[in-house]
Amino acid sequence: MLLIHCPYCEEARPEIEFRHAGEAHIARPADIASLTDEEFSRFFFYRDNPKGITFERWRHLHGCARFFNAARDTVTDKFLVTYPAGEAKPDLVEAANENAKGAT
């Protein structure tokens, strides 16, 4: 069971309090009704499946109940950073340094 740092509860909590919620940084288009079929299918059906760093959504369902985003390495299964929903993708170099500081 992983430990996941919740950016709202400000501490690492057991994985079973959380639920994975798919790829992050896919915003629902404001003018969704006027998308072409191609645009809609890109938005709704297509997802990345990278080997390595992935940006994904989690919800601290059985905690503060907030959705948030995370960068996780799918090879090592390690979280690089978690951050509130709505924030831009973080600079992972800086995040890795922050992480290293936090770990010592």
Binding site: C9, P14, I16, E17, H62, G63
Partner: peptide, 10 residues
């Protein structure tokens, strides 16, 4: 205090 899990219940 915290919302959390106990067994299979929240």
């Amino acid at each position: 205090c915290s919302r959390t899990i106990f067994g299979k219940a929240e």
